[in-house]
Write a protein that binds this DNA or RNA. Structure first.
Length: 884
RNA sequence: GGGCGAUUGGCGCAGAUGGUUAGCGCGCUUCGUUCACACCGAAGAGGUCACAGGUUCGAGUCCUGUAUCGCCCA
């Protein structure tokens, strides 16, 4: 029963109206009574709450929603929760700037603290002007701001039409997440997969935190090569070229490539460092690059990662002089003490590496050990991806989780997991394999930050007052979550904190990835909701960007492999980048981002989704407003064509009527041909979706839909109209029924892409949501087609086009009647055109004779109207337009 | 330097297992105020498939190399 086809249709306002309806009716609520085989579970990426969403998010999250909606219509109960990644440094930095505060863990908590600012329009508050607050106050501010951010994010996602169950949201720093991350860590610890080590590691002096390999970014950094002489007893000096002369006091060896002819005679001998007179060996190692600088390098503890490699592989002594704050150590090291350079070291101690470099260069110049002037160079330096100073390498005590970086067996197991995972597109697997194969260390998870999941450990304080790091106090699992900086371990009281015989809490938090790598465990209720866990884990799909295969995807595989012994999901769907019109990756720093909400408001959500859907997984896509306009037209066409197709059965007086969907009523050959085509389209779209190829599914559906509108609808409109009666001849009923069946099918096929327009149309004449309607299958359509050939519609369409062409060339209205014409048709299509000739005549306004003949040899061009040719055409005057 | 991907009419893209005259959309040209739609419709023009070799009866499609672009890792 038609409930109401509006007189005028519009896409405007559909987003608010339907989001509200879906919300009220809990359309996308997860029904957890379903069993694992009936469920399709999605491990959605939690966006960084303190960041801002950009077009790339809209793009990739749409890809996920297409799958979610498709699977839901296929009858799966879709588990599609949304999370917010709010822990970590990005939030801390945003809070510092937004509220004008900074965290000082030594301060006490202040009740009802109000920060000096409430948003500073993105301007940075200078560190000197930031009000220091306690750790707990700082964390409260973090929580306050992320809550606001999350609400904005949800609004955007709702407007975009993500079919998420909004009652299932989680935060990477919510209580469940903390408990999960801590429990997983404690388990890793118990199994020996987590360990602490005092080791050289990358250190960001600005943020005062250790940084993991996955967070590195190599950037060009300007520097100077300094040609520096190392002395040889009774020989020529050896010149090295270094960009970091301030590390000369930390030198432990000179190293050249074993095959380097120039240095063969030096291997096994020793040289002495300039200024400091420290004797160091000359050694051979393959990592020395003969064509870089002088080909012989000084190895310090530690100038860069190669130094660490040499230090480890050549078992060199540790002579570290750079502290965590990026300054030279205060104490004169024992290997310099009493030597020639003791006074000089005293000068540079406490300096930043930059000032120390100046001082050392001056000293080298004075001593004559600097050959020539420093030469400017661009070198690659390691940066923390969010930092702006090159990383230093300092030795510190940190926690690690094994990830195969130092263990061949585990690496092989993880590579095998990669092979088990279905990547879409498949070649993205290579990125995983390259990354896993190239790891050279375990995963450092300690972060010396505040807003994160605390490392759930305490350490005993010995009678001597020293902290016993070797014997951490581990909480029982049922105590979790814990905050060791504010809670005492079991068996202790808070007043024993820091006292001999008492304890100290680990002050560090975990790396963000150490929590988000557990997103499947967090959303699926691992050891918290066993019932849910059994229903949704291992999950079906992990959608994400290609840039975080090495981080998020890999770390999630690591955690599930270690904890659960399985792959966390069956499929990984990888979305590409959004490129601006200059083919550059869109990013905030380049100033070429577009605010997603504005985009959705301007073009409509269906339109923006269409643009996103027209890019395949893994393929970079251009930010193309034109593509959105096409999507908008498609959505409007769906509304208009539906209104038209549904109008035929209506009583002109009441505006009501019955829409028939009985396939047996489709008796006319042309109608059956259309359904045959639709059956093929349904089959292809389904196959494409099953292969995670949403673009192909859209393309075949969309192409058919336009043909349906331009040809079929035009051909049958007169017959379907049936002189304007509510009931009609069998032919009229056939057309009306075929239109309704086609519409019913097309709306479903388009529903994942255009959730708003299709739902709107659905509401005019069907009950429930189109998003819970069954995905169409080809068989019923095929049986309704009763063996008709889809090409018969093509033939009739070509016949109509041939007639239109005559009018177009005569530059006359399509309403002009054809008083007489001969239509030559290729033999193969003659029967088809003949069977549809009544519809062709009506649509072409042929009022006189229409003679059908077979095309002669050489007549017509198959590319033009299927080789059909009109001749002997007599056109009449167009009828005057009917008034009102 | 290594890896992955891309290179098809002005623009954005399709083109499984190689097979007759290479498709689609936008834009463009011409025409049409048709009562579903002017956020429209009809007709039309437009490409030596980056380049150079090779395999083949036959290559946009396979192989080799080169160039340009993007991303990732050194």
């Amino acid at each position: 029963m038609v409930k109401g086809v509006p007189d005028r249709v519009s896409t405007d306002g559909l987003e608010e109206k339907l989001d509200a309806r879906w919300s009220d009716e809990a359309t996308f609520a997860f029904d957890r009574s379903k069993t694992r085989e009936q469920i399709y579970s999605i491990d959605t990426p939690p966006p960084t709450a303190s960041g801002s969403l950009h077009v790339g998010h809209v793009f990739s999250y749409t890809h996920t929603d297409l799958v979610a909606r498709y699977k839901r219509m296929r009858g799966y109960e879709v588990f599609y929760p949304m999370g917010w990644d709010d822990n970590g440094l990005p939030t801390e930095r945003r809070v510092q700037n937004y509220y004008g505060v900074r965290c000082d863990p030594s301060l006490p908590y202040v009740e009802d603290f109000e920060p000096p600012h409430q948003g500073t329009d993105g301007k940075n508050v200078k560190p000197a002007d930031q009000v220091p607050v306690s750790r707990r106050n700082f964390i409260e501010l973090c929580e306050r701001l992320t809550t606001e951010d999350e609400q904005k994010f949800e609004q955007l996602w709702r407007r975009l039409g993500l079919s998420v169950d909004w009652s299932q949201t989680y935060q990477t720093i919510g209580a469940d997440s903390i408990a999960t991350a801590q429990k997983a860590f404690v388990r890793n610890l118990a199994r020996g997969e987590a360990y602490q080590a005092e080791a050289p590691g990358l250190w960001d002096v600005t943020f005062q935190t250790a940084v993991a390999q996955a967070e590195l970014e190599a950037r060009d950094y300007p520097g100077h090569y300094h040609k520096v002489a190392f002395g040889r007893p009774g020989g020529e000096p050896v010149f090295i070229e270094t960009t970091r002369p301030e590390l000369i006091p930390a030198v432990v060896a000179l190293i050249a490539h074993p095959d380097d002819e120039r240095y063969q005679h030096l291997f096994g001998t020793t040289v002495t460092s300039p200024l400091f007179g420290v004797e160091v060996p000359v050694l051979a190692h393959h990592a020395a690059e003969p064509d870089k600088g002088a080909g012989i390098a000084m190895c310090c503890t530690f100038g860069d990662l190669t130094d660490v490699q040499w230090w480890r592989e050549l078992q060199l002594p540790t002579r570290s002089i750079v502290r965590r704050d990026g300054r030279i150590t205060r104490e004169v090291p024992e290997w310099i003490e009493g030597g020639a350079g003791e006074a000089l070291f005293g000068e540079i101690s406490g300096m930043t590496t930059f000032s120390a470099r100046k001082a050392i260069v001056e000293a080298l110049r004075a001593s004559g050990d600097l050959a020539g002037e420093p030469v400017a160079t661009q070198r690659k330096a390691n940066f923390y991806e969010k930092g702006d100073k090159p990383l230093e390498i300092v030795t510190s005590r940190q926690w690690y989780i094994r990830n195969g970086g130092r263990d061949g067996d585990l690496r092989d197991e993880l590579l095998a997991r990669g092979k088990e995972l279905d990547f879409h597109p498949d070649h993205m697997r290579v990125r995983y394999e390259n990354w896993v194969g190239g790891l050279n260390g375990d995963w450092l998870i300690s972060r010396q930050r505040f807003f994160g999941v605390p490392i759930p450990l305490w350490y005993p304080v010995l009678a001597s007052g020293d902290v016993d790091h070797e014997n951490p106090i581990v909480p029982a699992e049922d105590q979790l979550p814990v905050d060791p900086t504010s809670q005492p371990p079991a068996g202790f009281t808070e007043d024993q904190r820091g006292r001999p015989g008492g304890f100290v809490g680990d002050a560090d938090v975990m790396d963000t990835w150490a929590t988000s790598s557990l997103s499947p465990q967090i959303v699926a209720g691992w050891e918290r909701d066993e019932d849910l866990w059994q229903r949704v884990f291992p999950m079906d799909l992990r959608p994400q960007g290609q840039d975080i295969i090495r981080t998020w995807l890999f770390s999630t595989v690591v955690r599930a492999h270690l904890e659960n012994g399985v792959l966390p999901w069956k499929n990984a769907a990888i979305s590409g980048w959004i490129l601006d019109p200059d083919r550059k990756k869109m990013s905030k720093s380049k100033g070429n981002v577009v605010t997603p909400m504005d985009l959705l408001v301007e073009h409509g959500s269906d339109a923006v989704r269409y643009w996103a859907a027209s890019a395949r997984l893994g393929a970079d896509a251009a930010f193309e407003v034109g593509q959105m306009k096409i999507g908008r037209r498609l959505a409007i066409k769906v509304l208009n064509a539906s209104k038209f197709a549904l109008s035929f059965g209506l009583d002109p007086e009441s505006g009501e009527g019955e829409i028939l969907l009985d396939p047996a009523a489709v008796t006319v050959e042309l109608d059956r041909a259309m359904l045959a085509g639709l059956a093929a389209v349904t089959e292809q779209a389904t196959a494409a979706f099953e292969a995670y190829d949403h673009t192909r599914a859209l393309e075949v559906t969309e192409t058919f839909f336009w043909t349906f509108c331009d040809d079929y609808l035009e051909l049958v409109k007169d017959r379907a109209y049936g002189a304007g009666t509510a009931t009609g001849s069998a032919e009229t009923t056939s057309a009306r029924t075929a239109l309704a069946i086609a519409l019913d099918t097309l709306l479903r096929l388009l529903a994942p892409y255009l959730p708003f327009a299709t739902e709107e149309v659905w509401s005019w004449w069907r009950t429930g949501s189109v998003h819970h309607a069954a995905w169409p299958t080809p068989d019923p359509l095929r049986s309704a087609a009763a063996g008709a050939e889809a090409t018969n519609l093509t033939a009739a369409g070509n016949a109509l086009a041939a007639i239109r062409k005559v009018k177009s060339e005569a530059k006359t209205s399509m309403r002009a009647p054809v008083l007489a014409a001969t239509l030559a048709v290729p033999a193969a299509d003659l029967a088809a055109v003949r069977s549809a000739v009544g519809d062709v005549r009506a649509a072409g306004r042929v009022t006189g004779d229409l003679v059908l003949t077979e095309t002669a040899e050489g007549q017509g061009d198959l590319n033009v109207q299927g080789g059909m040719v009109t001749s002997g055409v007599e056109l009449g005057e167009p009828e005057p337009r009917k008034k009102g």
